[in-house]
Every structure is written in C-alpha cells, then in structure tokens.
Nucleic acid binder design. Structure first.
Lengths: 244, 244
DNA sequence: TGCCATTCAAATGCCAGACAATTAAAGTCT
DNA sequence: AGACTTTAATTGTCTGGCATTTGAATGGCA
C-alpha cells in the first residue's frame, strides 16, 4: 500500500483510495481494525490530519466506522443494505435533479425496473406485504390528504411491492429508482379524479398479487405507467401554456 | 445552517450533513462556490481542520469539488452519471461480498433487471450497440481467452444491451447490478462447452435485438439466466463435493 | 476469593498557528 | 498593447498540543 507524494492528487485522496482498494480486494476484511491514525501517518509518511481526512472520506462511504477510546480505532465496516439505501437514494435524487432528466425518462426507468419485480413478487409476496399495500391504498383514498402525503404513501406502496420479491439486491436497486422519483412526483397536483384512477390501478395490482397472477401484475403496472405519464403530461402542459 | 456542539455525532459529520442537506434541497445550486474554509470555520465556530474533514466527506460523495488558487474554493459539483457509475459499482460489489448474497439471488436480480431493458433496447438500440455486441460475441468465441477476459467481455456485452435502451437512469441502475456480478462470475471456470452455449445464447439475443423483437429478446435473456444458474450450480456442486 | 472503585493508557476528536503550493487577478515595464 | 512580475486569496499540509472517551489493569475492601 504505497502512495506517490509527487502526484497531482491530494495525499488524503490517494490514501483513501489505497485503503479502499484493500477493502474491495478483500485484503482488509470486515471488522478488521486499521492501524491507528498515528501509525498510518507513519506508514504513509504524512501527518495525522492528512490521514484523518482520508479516513473521513472512507467513513462518508460507510466503508469504515470509527470508535473512540482505548480499544478504539477505525474498523472495516460491514456495509449493510440498510446503510446503503439512503446513499443510493441521495445519489439518485441528485442525478435526476442535476442532469435535467425528463419526467418521462425517469418514469420509464422506474416502471421498467418495477415491472421486473412483478413475477417474483407475485410468487413470493407475504401476507404482510399485501397488508401494507392494502393499508396504503386505503390511506390514498382518504380525502384531505395533501399531495405530499399522497406521494409518500405511493412510495410506501411501491416499496412493499418491490420488497415482496424477497430479493434484497432488487430492493436495493429499486430504492433509488422509486424514491428518487418522489421530488418529481411532488411537482404534480392530483385532482380527486386523478387519485381515484391511481387508487383503482393500485387495487388492480394488489388484487393481481393476491391471486399470485404475474401477468396481471405486470399489465396493471404497465397501465399505471401509462396513466402516470399521461397525468404528468397534462399537468406540465397546463403549467406551461406555451405559445402558438 | 446550524450544528449542535453537544451532539454525540462528530462535528465534521454534522457540518457535512448540513451542507449536504443544503445541496439536496437546492439551497446550494450547481457550480455555486461555498464559503472558504476559513469562513466556514467562523460560521460553524469550529477550527479549519474540522471544516476540512467535513468537506472531504462531501468530496468523497462527489457532492463538491475543490480548486486551489486565488479564485479557488469548494464548488457544488454537478453529479454526472459518469461519476456516479464507479461509486455505484463499488457499493454494489461490497454489498454482495459482505452480505453473503448467494449467487442465485444476485443472478436473479441481475437478469430480472436486465430483462426490463429488453423491450426498450429492442426498440431503440443503435447499430453501434449491435456492433459492440457482435464484436464481444466474436471475442468470446476466441480460444485461449482467460476466464477473466471472458467475463469482462460478458460485462461489455450486457452493458451494450442495457445502454441500447437509451435511458441513462436505467443504465446507471443496471451498472451496479451487472458489474457487481463480475467477481462472482469470475469464480466460475468455463469449459469450452459452457462458452459455446453462452455464445449461442448471446447470439440469440443479438439476433432478436437486430430484428427489434422484444419478446424474443426477453425470452433469450430468460434462457441465458437459466443457463447461467445451472452452470453455477454445477460448478459450485463440483467444488464442494459435500458428504453422503 | 470475588467484586467494585480508581487509575491509567491508548485512541480518536478538536484546536491554534504556521508554512507551502497554486492560481488568477492586478500592477508594471517595455 | 502586450508580456512579465507581483500580489493576494485559497487550498494542501505539517507541527504540536489538549480534551474526551473508553476499555483494561490495578488495588482496596468485604
């Protein structure tokens, strides 16, 4: 594990990169303690603050955790799906907002991914998942619900659908796509009529899942995408009544 | 933007979190310059090294970039898909290796996601994408190719398929799923017979895409998943000849 | 002996001040 | 006007130090 003091890159970035490589390659294993900051400073021939900056970089990616005290230090962190979710969501959200991704593109991706869960979820969904979906559908039908709360419930509904597939890798990947859409969805104002249509489609999905009918689930999701795209188009068209 | 000096959390983590929130919420916009380290230290009432640790955390997530010199400083970074790819891949790889995700689960997720690109890719794939896939297929047929090179070519092939859908959000999400599988695939040794079967299925996929036949693409991907799962099962069974 | 309080040492968290390196802008000379 | 020099601002790095946390060793007491 060596660094180049003459490189253009920051020393702390190089050190972080070296340690990261050791973790990814498996040279450092989970829960293994890294040398103390002072020892690392010696090894890399830099000062302690520089080492600390490197460690903070790794901590920001949840690759290590630090613990104070006598037996403390930096430890290789077991990256869990739970820890990775928020990062994935933050990154996805920023990607959408900073790259002028159209609603259409984001929506297309989201439903394409979600449909990929349909067959698995139809096969494996637990009664719990179904109950969550039914509960969210019920909430979505309540009058007086704000648009934000409606969207949040929508996210919960779809999370349950995705989690129903019983595949943590899928759930992780989908978390970004589904949750990152929320800011975009929040830009839409839902009329009572819109909500009724969406609730009806959600009910179709839940019914199909209850019957463990993969094809019907798939089709209902497809219908929901079409509905969502149409709704968005009409809302955006109304907001920006362009000339001619 | 305030922090609590009595909180249990590190000051640098709190500061990073505060700035991150400002970026995500849109209070800080792309390319906007943050106050200098000295000014931030004043504002948050901490020392400069502490501010620096916070900034390095944000830099590790590509949320800011720093520039030295007279007009330098920390700037809100426009997070691009290209920057986000490697992070996504690193995270996905670690998630798989650290959480004892079975080959079966990872493979299932990967192909489920990939199949979601099939209809779009069949519609939109450019001649370029097709050419890349054909080239990789040809490479995969070459004798003397190492298993690692074969797997790398496999990844390129599937990347082309995914990119063919022409949806950057999909490409981003899939990058993690496809590339993170590579270390797992590398554990498999491919016989010439295995490779021939895979190449045949790859050819089926390319043919279907060329004809813009979404259903055939979907089915060929399904067949490839079945083949891959069977292959992995036989390899793992051979490696671990359990008792009885 | 067994248990509890105390002390100790190791490690991270934080700070102050300083210097080096870089870079663009302002100033100066031809 | 253009090329060169100076200057100021900013990040990158180092030194040294103190505060805080925390587990472990120590020692006293029942």
């Amino acid at each position: 594990m060596k660094i180049d003091p003459n490189s253009a890159a920051d020393l702390s970035a190089q050190i972080a990169s070296a340690i990261r490589d050791s973790i990814v390659s498996g040279a450092l294993i989970v829960d293994q303690r890294l040398p103390s900051e002072a020892e690392l400073a010696d090894q890399f021939d830099v000062s302690r603050p520089t080492v600390r900056e490197a460690l903070k970089r790794l901590a920001a990616q949840s690759l290590i955790r630090t613990q104070r005290g006598a037996t403390g230090g930096a430890f290789v962190n077991k990256l869990s799906f739970e820890e990775a979710y928020p990062q994935q969501i933050t990154t996805s959200t920023l990607l959408l907002s900073m790259n002028a991704v159209s609603f259409e593109t984001a929506c297309e991706a989201r439903y394409a991914l979600e449909r990929s869960c349909a067959p698995l979820s139809a096969k494996r969904r637990s009664p719990d998942h179904l109950a969550t979906m039914r509960a969210e559908i019920h909430r979505q039908g309540q009058p007086g619900l704000t648009d934000e709360a409606f969207c949040a419930s929508d996210v919960s509904f779809h999370r349950a659908l995705v989690d129903g597939a019983g595949n943590p890798v899928l759930s992780y990947q989908l978390a970004g796509a589904v949750e990152a859409m929320q800011p975009l969805m929040n830009m839409i104002t839902f009329t009572a009529r819109d909500r009724a249509r969406i609730v009806a489609l959600h009910t179709d999905i839940a019914d199909a899942l209850e019957k463990q009918d993969a094809d019907a689930t798939f089709d209902a999701l497809k219908a929901l995408e079409v509905e969502t795209q149409a709704l968005a188009q009409s809302v955006f068209a109304a907001k920006k009544p362009s000339s001619t």
